[in-house]
Design a protein around this nucleic acid. Structure first.
Lengths: 154, 154
DNA sequence: GCGTAATTGAAAATCATTTTCATTTAGAAA
DNA sequence: TTTCTAAATGAAAATGATTTTCAATTACGC
């Protein structure tokens, strides 16, 4: 709604149009509780707007990410998922079992970055921090059920 | 060399064989100064061992990662690259310009993880931290030359 | 409303990855 | 060393994800 208005303005500034496809895609990503893959977004958005094509989803995700409305999420699995920007002001805490993601902003890496800059001579300007584990919901039944196969290296 | 011996032992324990293909792939990743994609590894390893097939590279990368000899790297670009484990005891500092990667181990996230665990109820057991910026080499000439295009789509 | 550039979706093309399968090979045992 | 067999291999095909092409459609400034 309000977001659509802002988007409309942002698009106009670049001589671009606010289409139903773009609204549908943005709505899906914005309302999602967790990051979604392009295919998932396509499936969900197609319900709102059945005429939608997968190609357009890819193009729209690129566009929205460029404009800063959504963000690419890099998790261990699902390298190319997307999450609304609001949800990603900072970093992710992703549940390895159900994919639910919490975000947090306080990452306090300043001192680390400072010392690394001095030590390495790099100029550091981006950082990506992703934490993974199990959310409360997935931890609870885990005690009762059999544990998931560790699929570990050993 | 020494690494090959260790690998041989590790493989034997799992009833697996030390093949020329595996040696070639491991050598390439181990000697790399930055993380490489499967295709890059294939191209380079094929020089050492021309008979090598791409399929085998994929299978070998999985195996070596499982055994802990190499690690998957998740950077903003190149979601499925690999780096030697030695280089990734901790985290990466990647140069956005030339791709050169430094690694560091002191990440000091314990207090952050602690407080997040309490706050969210998550059990946190993995973290991924990647810093990006420009390395000294790429910074130096930057002052003299024109700055690189910011790589925006617009 | 009109005109036009931007956008679209379907299909084809491309690219990365996995599977299949007949052949080859490492390495344990003789 | 030779023999034997399970493990590993590479080529080709299959699969999946993403991008390109292009003619048709649509948003929106006029």
């Amino acid at each position: 709604m309000t977001q659509s208005l802002t988007l409309h303005k942002d698009l106009r500034q670049n001589h671009r149009k606010l289409t139903r496809a773009r609204q549908a895609v943005l709505a899906i990503v914005t309302d999602a509780q967790r990051h979604l893959t392009p295919a998932e977004i396509y499936r969900k958005a197609k319900i709102k707007y059945p005429h939608l094509g997968l190609t357009t989803v890819y193009r729209t995700l690129d566009l929205l990410a460029e404009l800063g409305y959504i963000q690419r999420v890099h998790a261990v699995e699902g390298c190319h998922s997307y999450a609304p920007t609001a949800q990603t002001h900072g970093h992710h805490l992703v549940c390895a079992t159900c994919g639910r993601a919490e975000e947090f902003t306080d990452c306090d890496l300043e001192s680390l970055i400072q010392s690394l800059q001095v030590r390495t001579g790099f100029e550091i300007n981006v950082h990506m921090l992703e934490l993974m584990g199990r959310c409360p919901d997935c931890r609870a039944p885990a005690r009762a059920r059999k544990r998931k196969t560790p699929r570990g290296k050993a």
